[in-house]
């Protein structure tokens, strides 16, 4: 039963576009799933490894720009671009990790913030590559036929399926990660870095590896963002507040759980999107508000607390 349940849930998720045709609801679903991937990716580093990054927008932006640039300049289909965006995000994370992981705790967080700002400024000013503040726009996506029918990119259903598959892969990756040796190493590092090093764990290498994994998933989601919105500019994909949103989804949902970012994304993104639909600006009010409430009253996050109540542990 325990093994069948996730499979059923996954199939149900993929079947949603068959039953739901309301485009706004699908858009909401797509946004929630995209943020689920981002929350999961951040949680690998921030939750399991305890390294709070405020710079994940870097990898998101790199993924988004890679997808867009490869499609616009070389007509490379966006799905390959998405995968390459993830890879490039992971490659970028290596030097960033080697520099920032020399620092610990809040100092690491500040360093990632500075790196993200440097990258944002480069994206803003390297006009020959990124088109600067004007951004990049895709007018049409390539023709694709599945089972003899052309995919209609003007509707949300195909995007929903793509992002749902990505989110399921991310969840599977996170699950495998928690059961891996690396996962245990990182738990040890989170609890006591000096002790972990003393028992022979290569702490820097473990942290750089998990950062690369996290950056890969973030870059993938960034690529999807480019594909879905067909428009990127530095202020849309490299902003500090974007990094902060990823942090909040994981923390509000529940650190160090796989369902946590899912719950966080459903909860925060839904409220924010409904508010955005009505008022255009200020939808991040709820992110800030719930972050403060959660840290104050529910440090283990919504899902973390729910799990504790469900399993009856005190």
């Amino acid at each position: 039963m325990k093994r069948v349940l996730p499979v059923i849930a996954a199939l149900l998720l993929l079947a949603i576009p068959l039953g739901v045709s309301n485009q706004f609801l699908l858009h909401l679903g797509i946004t929630v799933l995209m943020w689920t991937i981002l929350g999961l990716a951040w949680n690998l580093l921030g939750g399991y490894a305890g390294q709070v990054s405020f710079g994940h927008a870097t990898f998101f932006g790199i993924g988004a720009y890679t997808t867009m640039i490869l499609y616009l300049s070389f007509r490379l289909a966006p799905w390959y671009g998405m995968a390459l965006g993830g890879v490039l995000g992971a490659l970028f994370s290596l030097p960033i990790g080697l520099i920032c992981f020399r620092l610990r705790g809040p100092y690491f967080s500040l360093a990632t913030l500075a790196v993200a700002e440097i990258i944002r400024l480069v994206a803003l000013n390297w006009e020959s590559l990124t088109n600067g503040p004007v951004g990049l726009l895709i007018t049409s996506l390539p023709q694709v036929t599945v089972f003899g029918a052309a995919i209609n990119w003007e509707r949300k259903e195909p995007f929903f399926v793509i992002v749902a598959v990505l989110a399921l892969c991310a969840m599977l990756a996170a699950y495998l990660f928690t059961r891996s040796r690396l996962g245990s190493y990182l738990t040890a590092i989170r609890e006591d870095e000096d002790a972990a090093e003393a028992i022979g764990i290569d702490t820097t290498r473990s942290k750089v590896t998990v950062l690369a994994l996290s950056a890969f998933l973030t870059g993938l989601a960034g690529g999807f963002y480019g594909l879905y919105f067909r428009y990127v500019d530095p202020d849309a994909v490299f902003l500090i507040s974007l990094s902060v949103e990823m942090v909040f989804i994981a923390v509000v949902g529940g650190l160090r759980t796989i369902a946590g970012p899912v719950v966080g994304a459903i909860f925060l993104t839904t409220i924010a999107e409904l508010f955005r639909e009505r008022f255009m600006v200020g939808h991040l009010i709820f992110y800030g508000l719930f972050m403060m409430l959660v840290i104050r009253f529910l440090p283990e996050g919504i899902w973390g607390r729910a799990l504790r109540i469900l399993t009856g542990r005190r």
């Binding site: 405020f54 507040s241 902060v244 909040f248 992110y287 800030g288 972050m291 403060m292 840290i295």
Partner: peptide, 14 residues
């Protein structure tokens, strides 16, 4: 750090 980040996002967005 996370708490004041929340405060920052809340104030800026209000």
């Amino acid at each position: 750090l996370l708490y004041t980040a929340g405060m920052s996002l809340l104030i800026a967005n209000v």
